[in-house]
C-alpha cells in the first residue's frame, strides 16, 4: 500500500516537473470560450518569437478576478495579459496602479468610448446584454416585451430571470446602466414580478429552455450558442438600448516580459484574432470585421446601444458598492 502511495505522489511531482520547460512563458488569463482559444492558440504562438511559450489560463471572469486579486495581494501574479469581461475590475486594477499603460497602434480603430484614455486597457471584443426568450413559450410575438421597461409589467410576473450581478460582471453592467436610465423604481417592479437573479448567464439560458423562466436578461453570445444547438432560445434587442459589456485587454504592470506582452496585445487586434472572436458569437470592435452569424449586424445595433464612455465607467465604478448593495436590498432580499 505504501509503495502505491509513494509512486502516486512521485507521479504527481513528475507531472509538475514536466510543466517546467526552459522556454520563456507568456501567461494569458482569460474568460473567453475554450473553442475560441483553440482557434487562437496556433496563430498567436506563430506571431510570437520562437523561444516563447504562450500559456493560457481559462476560467470564468469572476474566478479569474478572485485568483488574480489574491495573487496580487500576495505579492505577484504570473499573468502577463488579462482578457475578461468585467470593465469595472479593469478600472479598479488601473486605479491601484496594477496595469501597464500601452497605447497600441494596433488598437487605433477601436472606438474611443471603449478605450481607456490613459491607455491602461482597451476593448478587444464587445459582448452585449439582450433579452432572451423561449420561442416555444412565446409562440405569438406580440406577447413579447419590446424593451427593458416592459419587463416591469405585471404580465411578466414569474417569467423572468437574470444572472446575479454580484457574481457576474456582465450582469452588473446591465443593472448599473438600467438603474441609471430607469432608477430603482424599475427594480422594485422587477422584484414584485418575482424575478430570479441567481447564477451566471448559462443558468439563465437553462431557465429559459426549461420554461422555468421563459424570459431572461442574458448575454447575446449565450443565446446565439444555444440557437446553434437548435434550442428554442431567441434574442430580442430591446428598443431602449442594448447593453454593451466592455471586455478589455490589459497588460499587468508586473509582467516579466512587457515587450512580449505588447506583441501579443497587438495580435489580438489583428483580423485573425478578431475573426476568431466573431466565431465565438461576440461582436468585434473593429468596424470592418463581420458580425456573428444570426446576430443583428453591428452597424444596425450600434444606433440603439445604451450610452457608454470612460466617464460613465468611472462614475459607475465610484457608485459600485452602493449599486450592488441597493440591488441586494431591492431584489435579492
Amino acid at each position: 500500500m505504501k509503495t502505491i502511495q509513494a509512486s502516486l505522489l512521485l507521479i504527481v511531482f513528475l507531472l509538475s516537473a514536466a510543466s517546467c520547460s526552459g522556454k520563456k512563458k507568456l501567461w494569458i488569463y482569460t474568460s473567453i470560450y475554450k473553442e475560441v482559444i483553440e482557434t487562437m492558440r496556433e496563430p498567436l504562438q506563430k506571431a510570437m518569437p520562437a523561444d516563447v511559450e504562450v500559456v493560457w489560463f481559462q476560467s470564468g471572469s469572476e474566478n479569474i478576478a478572485s485568483k488574480l486579486n489574491a495573487e496580487l495581494a500576495a505579492g505577484a501574479t504570473r499573468a502577463d495579459l488579462v482578457l475578461t469581461s468585467d470593465p469595472f475590475w479593469y478600472y479598479e486594477l488601473k486605479q491601484e496602479g496594477k496595469l501597464l499603460p500601452y497605447k497600441s497602434p494596433a488598437a487605433k480603430d477601436i472606438p474611443d468610448i471603449y478605450v481607456d484614455p490613459d491607455g491602461a486597457f482597451a476593448g478587444v471584443r464587445l459582448p452585449v446584454m439582450v433579452i432572451g426568450y423561449n420561442s416555444r413559450y412565446f409562440a405569438n410575438e406580440s406577447e413579447l416585451p419590446k424593451n427593458w421597461k416592459d419587463l416591469a409589467d405585471p404580465r411578466f410576473k414569474r417569467l423572468i430571470s437574470m444572472p446575479n450581478p454580484l457574481e457576474s460582471g456582465s450582469s452588473f453592467t446591465a443593472i448599473a446602466l438600467l438603474q441609471k436610465k430607469y432608477g430603482w423604481d424599475f427594480f422594485e417592479k422587477l422584484r414584485s414580478n418575482d424575478i430570479i437573479a441567481a447564477g451566471g448567464n448559462s443558468s439563465v439560458i437553462t431557465r429559459i429552455e426549461t420554461r422555468e423562466r421563459p424570459l431572461g436578461i442574458v448575454l447575446l453570445e449565450n443565446v446565439l450558442k444555444a440557437w446553434d444547438k437548435d434550442s428554442p432560445v431567441r434574442p430580442l434587442y430591446p428598443a431602449d438600448g442594448t447593453i454593451p459589456v466592455l471586455s478589455p485587454i490589459a497588460i499587468l504592470r508586473d509582467s516579466r516580459n512587457p515587450d512580449l506582452a505588447k506583441i501579443a496585445y497587438d495580435w489580438f487586434f489583428t483580423p485573425e484574432a478578431q475573426n476568431a472572436i466573431v466565431l465565438g458569437s461576440m461582436y468585434s470592435l473593429v468596424e470592418t470585421a463581420p458580425s456573428p452569424g444570426r446576430a443583428k449586424p453591428y452597424a444596425e445595433l450600434k444606433a440603439s446601444m445604451m450610452p457608454w464612455s470612460a466617464e460613465i465607467l468611472a462614475q459607475m465604478y465610484a457608485e459600485r458598492a452602493s449599486i450592488k448593495s441597493k440591488f441586494s436590498d431591492t431584489v435579492l432580499r
Binding site: 478572485s66 489574491a70 495573487e71 495581494a73 500576495a74 505579492g75 505577484a76 501574479t77 504570473r78
Partner: peptide, 13 residues
C-alpha cells in the same frame, strides 16, 4: 482556495 493562492504565490516568489 484563496489562502492557498496566497501561500503558493509566496512560495513561487
Amino acid at each position: 482556495a484563496i489562502l492557498l493562492i496566497f501561500i503558493s504565490t509566496w512560495v513561487a516568489l
